[in-house]
């Protein structure tokens, strides 16, 4: 299976991942080779097999809804690229 340059660009946009124009073809080739590897799976019948998401098939544990943590906003925001009045700053979203 061969991915086109356009498909690679579309995937990159879905992932919000900047890739250089000059690298698009290399990524297309690499991803196509990896997809070729994947086709080996289709030769195996998995009709009545349950998908395995967790090695121990453990069910997601729940905890009681009680407050365990104290507010550490300033502590966590001390490593943010840009903040103002306790908010994370990003470029303007609405005009």
């Amino acid at each position: 299976m061969m991915l086109t340059a356009e498909e690679v660009k579309k995937i990159a946009y879905l992932a919000r991942l900047g890739i250089d124009e000059k690298d698009v073809e290399t990524y297309a080739n690499d991803l196509s080779s990896i997809l070729d590897l994947m086709t080996q799976m289709s030769e195996t019948c998995t009709d009545d097999i349950l998908p395995m998401a967790h090695p121990m098939d453990q069910i997601q544990r729940l905890r009681s809804d009680t407050v365990l943590e104290s507010d550490q906003r300033e502590h966590f925001q001390s490593i943010a690229p840009q903040i103002d009045s306790g908010f994370y700053l990003v470029p303007k979203v609405l005009d």
């Binding site: 799976m41 998995t46 097999i49 395995m52």
Partner: peptide, 14 residues
């Protein structure tokens, strides 16, 4: 075709 299939084959490996 990819993710669910892979998880099924993963069970066979296990």
């Amino acid at each position: 075709a990819y993710y669910i299939k892979a998880q099924k084959v993963r069970r066979l490996i296990s």
